Simulated scan of single mutants.
Amino acid sequence: MYEWHNVFQPIYQVDKYLNLKVDHYEMLLRDKNGKFPVDDFFRIIGTEEDNQQWIQCEARALQKVFALHPNIHVNLNIEPVQFAHPSVWEFLKQTYDKYGQKVIIEITERQLQAGSIGSKYFDRSFQRIHNMGFKIALDDVDSGGNSFSFVSHHLDQICIIKLSLLIFDGVSTETMIKFIDAWVAFAKEKHLDVVLEAIRTKEIAQRYAGNNHIYQQGYFWKKGLELKDMPKDK
């Protein structure tokens, strides 16, 4: 059994004066050294039996965080390959029965690692999560499989798109802003919220502050917090 736990990275509503209010948190899986257990994680989620370790870890984390902070909302990350495991669906059902929309399902961009899962299975999976009552966030749009066309295809199920600014490393800030503005305009037209991930500069934080439908996440503001370090509910 791996020594995994979760940290909780705040996702903020930021006003035009750069005052912060936590809107919700993203659960981030970590090993005993505080790193994402990339090799072990992708190995164990490939089979129904091994994936139980992930389920047990996430169920424990949800139970602990809501026991201490019953009024928060958190994003639970799901890899597309996990849609193939029946126990994942039972876990999601139990999670919604316990916490309802306090848990947001964040679906990652790594569709190529989903093996034989095809587009029809994706469609059914998205609809199934939506029908359970969850809000759905798409992680890392414009990266991996979460392309513009994929986002457009699932507009009826999703309510949040997340854009990681890490993909713009190596291009100018001016060019990055054009990409961000295009996604923001699309999201506004389609009534989606946007989370800008990996914000690292005040320039970007300031530019997108004061918009009620744009949320900010990243090391410029705060790294993932251990459960004991999370602020008390007000």
Rank of each mutant, 00 (worst) to 15 (best):
V171K: 12
C159L: 01
A59K: 14
M27V: 02
R110G: 02
S119T: 13
G224I: 10
G210S: 03
L155P: 10
V88N: 07
V171I: 15
S147C: 03
K234V: 06
Y12F: 15
Y12N: 04
Y99K: 07
D140E: 06
K162Y: 11
T95K: 07
F66C: 05
H73E: 13
P80C: 07
V194Q: 09
I199V: 13
Q217T: 06
M132Y: 11
N19M: 01
K102G: 07
E79A: 13
N71K: 08
Y12M: 08
L163I: 06
D229A: 12
S149M: 10
R207C: 00
H154A: 13
A198M: 07
I167S: 12
R60S: 14
D39I: 07
K222D: 04
E49K: 15
N75M: 12
G34L: 06
C57F: 00
I107Q: 03
K16I: 09
V195D: 10
F134Y: 15
E226K: 12
W89Y: 04
Q206E: 13
G218L: 00
V74K: 04
R207F: 07
A205H: 01
Q13C: 05
V22S: 03
G144E: 04
L225I: 03
H191T: 11
Q113T: 08
I160E: 02
M132P: 00
D31F: 05
D156R: 07
E174L: 09
E189T: 10
Q127R: 13
K234L: 09
G115S: 09
D31Q: 01
K188A: 12
T201L: 08
V88W: 00
F126P: 02
Y99I: 06
I55N: 03
K202C: 02
P70I: 08
Q53A: 04
C57K: 02
G218M: 04
G145A: 11
E226S: 05
S143A: 11
F220A: 05
G100F: 05
F122S: 12
K162D: 10
G115K: 11
R43H: 13
S172W: 06
W89A: 08
Y96T: 06
E226H: 10
F91N: 11
V151C: 06
Q216F: 00
Q217Y: 02
E174T: 15
F134G: 04
P86A: 12
A59E: 12
R128V: 01
V7A: 02
P80E: 10
K223Q: 14
E203K: 09
K16S: 14
D15W: 13
Y219F: 14
K232Q: 15
F36P: 06
I104Q: 03
K32C: 00
D233R: 09
I45V: 13
H73S: 14
I72K: 12
D142S: 15
D233Q: 13
P10H: 10
T108H: 03
D169N: 13
Q94D: 14
D193T: 15
